[in-house]
Design a protein around this nucleic acid. Structure first.
Length: 276
DNA sequence: ACGGATGTTCGCGC
DNA sequence: CGCGCGAACATCCG
């Protein structure tokens, strides 16, 4: 479920793994992940390159290498980047299940793009900034980099009568929010997910903006904490969600049973007492 | 045992 | 043009 916080975390991890490294080898299977490009370009153009920067825009990862080469990476629903280092005993690097492409670096590590459902995307961009691609230009303000501005959000929401939940998932309105954090933010703001987006007052939009900031910040902090807990204690993930994934349980605020609705084809949890 | 739900984006049809 | 729906695919759950 990679939404903004998970993709931001992936960007930071890739920076640490790739920073200052040179790519020795690149391999890719012919899958639909390369839609709009080809796996042979991936294998041919990446070796010898050094990473210049990793950026994130909404849910997209933008990698820039020397020599004017870029790589756009979208994780879809189930994509992730994982690192494999050679075993000190055998010198072999285990290949993770569902790895569809990988880069071997000059420190002998391999970075695998793993994606069981193949909903993600990898696209090489030659001779131009990845950030100038139409899919990136079409994104609205990034919820973390640009912040969530009440006036801007109110203007974007006022352009349509769609349910506010659907509008929040529209990446041209605000980039980075997905089903989980939209659900959480609406609960935080006390707004019913079916409310026509243009019916929100400035005051309600302000609460929503605050809700989005709060749930994204909390998720990001939670991931850092979890990583520390995992590394030092070997502890796994915990459920960080207040509403999402708790349908049928009592609302943590008012105690009423949390309900769900399908809005825009997506399951949406909400509290019938707290969200109006 | 199998139908239904799952995160995201895109394209089609109304 | 805006909106809604289904497709892309694998896995998990009841």
């Amino acid at each position: 479920m990679p939404e903004l916080p998970e993709v931001e975390h992936a960007a930071r991890t890739l920076r640490a793994w790739l920073g200052g490294r040179t790519i020795r080898r690149a391999r890719a299977a012919d899958t639909r992940i390369f839609r709009g490009g080809s796996p042979s370009d991936f294998e041919r153009l990446l070796p010898g390159r050094r990473l210049e920067r990793v950026d994130r825009r909404g849910k997209y990862l933008l990698l820039t290498f020397d020599g004017d080469l870029g790589l756009l990476s979208h994780l879809g629903m189930t994509g992730k980047w994982v690192r494999r280092s050679p075993s000190p005993l055998t010198g072999r690097r285990p290949v993770p299940l569902h790895s569809h492409a990988h880069l071997v670096l000059d420190d002998k590590s391999a970075l695998h793009y793993v994606d069981p459902r193949l909903f993600g995307q990898l696209l090489l961009v030659r001779g131009g900034a990845v950030a100038e691609l139409p899919v990136i230009r079409a994104l609205g303000p990034d919820a973390l980099l640009d912040g969530v501005d009440t006036t801007t959000l109110h203007a974007a929401l006022s352009r349509s009568a769609r349910p506010v939940k659907v509008a929040l998932l529209d990446q041209s309105v605000l980039a980075g929010v997905g089903n989980i954090y939209a659900t959480e933010a609406l609960f935080h703001a006390g707004l019913h997910p079916t409310r026509p987006s243009r019916s929100l007052t400035l005051e309600e939009t302000s609460r929503l903006a605050e809700g989005i900031r709060a749930v994204l910040d909390r998720a990001l902090a939670g991931m850092v904490e979890e990583e520390i807990a995992y590394l030092s204690l070997g502890r796994g993930a915990v459920n960080r969600f207040v509403i999402y994934d708790r349908i049928g349980s009592p609302c943590p605020r008012c105690g009423r049973t949390l309900e769900s609705l399908v809005i825009g084809g997506r399951t949406s949890a909400f509290c019938p007492g707290c969200q109006r």
